[in-house]
Design a protein around this nucleic acid. Structure first.
Lengths: 336, 336
DNA sequence: TTGTAGGCGTTATCAA
DNA sequence: TTGATAACGCCTACAA
């Protein structure tokens, strides 16, 4: 029950607590011999410094925060994993907070969390990274912040992004290259940062190819809305030969709609998604999609935040590359 | 930059800091009038007590911990969500830690986390809840612990479980009732607590129905191994008319194997899963499966842990009900 | 290169 | 019913 403290270590090593502290924090000015003694005592007593005591005494808590709201389980999982890995490398801890269901108390609750836990800085994931009120409040409080995939890049805290528009364009070009001329689109949730960029990319690619704009249906980033959108798209008189959905969940819905309509995928209909979430590899046929490097982005975000907290300069925008993953759900259109 | 502290509140309310502290902790012995004054000052200054200071001074940190390792993204997501919700209700915070890739440093790292963060107690999710060394170490340290879905119930810290065996039996009975006589099984990961219970349930139900035991193939809880197991099962001379997989990911793999073999599901082959994870509703046809109340179990676990930390008695085993979710992947066998 | 004193923001103890 | 004061375990500033 009795905690091992820095005093015990100091006594065991025959030095003062300050010397132990210096070693712990890798401060200079400790003789090699002394350092060895201290290290040995630390190991022998298996001493672990108390984080609360540190954050109380010092100006740092060795704790970073990460907040999320709602996105898919796999996205949250990847992001957590990446950020935690980076923190572990740096000997820091990550405090994760869900903001689901906070409604209009969001800003207040986040500030409360930051104050109570003393996190040194915060990683804000989408769609929270698009909440201007939140970001403004954090800046006003002086909380070091990194935005993950925000909607607006100019101004605001440093951001980590992927080029959604270029990715959507690449996917559309992939479909065009396969020979598709009538390519429908299922738009993403209107409140989501990347939705606009993705539809813009689709439009741009069609324009570049000299093709007419295909039919668009609104979705809400979940399977059900993708299914409904797919049904509407497929019921039209002039059916598209390919449908590009703004995320994988909706693309899975479109695949279901095709199954229901008795249309073979990709024989009669090609379907493309976005995100390369778990689902993409699980539906049949597996989805051609865009791999968003969620884990890498979070890893990088944590790295930037660490720099930021240490007072170093960090770039305003860091862009990570995407990849087009071609799988079974897209093919050349049926010769008609 | 200057933090609002209990001193500011005390000054504003014209009382001592101890009185403010008493109000914060809902201790008795504060006059109603005084309490009102204090509350008003707290609200006006939007004061939030510092968690580190609390854990340093008091015997409690108002922080619970949750550790996980590897399971599917959706499982982790649900569990986090449930535990966080319960913590929020109680005014506590939840510290989440991934234990992926820790190898043989697992026990050491978990103990380090517990010591460093001062969490009051720990929720241990599967498959970590089956790690005897970990559980023993936590008990030795006197860390209040709740096990989520452990393999062994007798002894050890309080556990929250679902009756895996009964659920597997129910699913098998469902298939028998549909008319299946040759029911194959894809076994779950050998290291996973519930794998044995599920196969036992399947065996028991077949025995009860007076049926011969069907073919079994080993899987590892992921899609790929389910696919491989499905291929082996379907290649056999006497093909089963139904396959029950120990989890949904593997069931999705079996469905893929059926697709590849040109076997209609559920026309020529019925497939059943377990977990009701996201995947279950996404594959085509959607899976008949067992809903494991992961979120509820985590919610309950946090509740028990709170009681435990407060020194109350908690039951050794708490069992939550499962549900059989019948969807499109199971039907009567083709008349042959 | 090392050590001493003071304080971080709370809760606990004991007195008023 | 309230308050002064001493911890809690560490870091910062300053001294030796």
């Amino acid at each position: 029950m009795a905690r091992t403290t820095i005093d015990h270590v100091a006594a065991a090593a025959g030095v003062s607590i300050k010397t132990v502290s210096r070693d712990l924090n890798e401060e200079p000015g400790v003789r090699g011999e002394t350092r060895t003694k201290v290290r040995e005592a630390i190991a022998r007593l298996s001493y672990r410094p108390s984080l609360p005591a540190r954050s109380l005494a010092g100006r740092r808590s060795s704790l970073l925060g990460l907040i999320y709201e709602n996105p898919s389980a796999s996205y949250v999982f990847d992001v957590q994993d990446g950020a935690m890995a980076r923190c572990r490398d740096a000997g820091l801890r990550l405090f994760i907070q869900s903001c689901n269901g906070l409604g209009d108390r969001l800003v207040e609750e986040v500030l409360a969390m930051v104050e109570q836990t003393h996190v040194d800085g915060l990683i804000v994931t989408p769609p929270l990274s698009a909440r201007a009120d939140l970001i403004a409040a954090l800046e006003a409080k002086g909380v070091p912040t990194i935005r993950l995939a925000p909607d607006v890049l100019e101004g605001g805290p440093p951001a980590i992004v992927m080029d959604d528009e270029a990715a959507a364009r690449a996917m559309t070009e992939h479909l065009v290259d396969l020979g598709h001329r009538r390519i429908g689109f299922v738009a993403g949730h209107p409140g989501h940062p990347s939705s606009r960029l993705r539809i813009d990319g689709w439009r741009a690619a069609l324009a570049d190819a000299g093709l007419e704009e295909g039919p668009v249906e609104q979705g809400y980033n979940d399977l059900a809305s993708g299914l409904a959108a797919g049904q509407r798209l497929l019921a039209a008189a002039e059916r598209p030969t390919a449908i590009f959905a703004s995320n994988d969940d909706m693309a899975a819905g479109v695949v279901q709609a095709a199954h229901q309509a008795g249309l073979a995928v990709p024989g009669r209909l090609s379907v493309a998604g976005f995100d390369d979430s778990q689902i993409a590899a699980i539906v049949w046929p597996p989805l051609t999609t865009i791999r968003q490097p969620s884990r890498d982005m979070a890893f990088a975000a944590a790295g930037l935040l660490i720099d930021l907290v240490r007072g170093q300069e960090v770039p305003g925008v860091t862009e990570l590359p995407f990849a087009l993953v071609a799988r079974g759900s897209t093919a050349a259109p049926a010769a008609s």
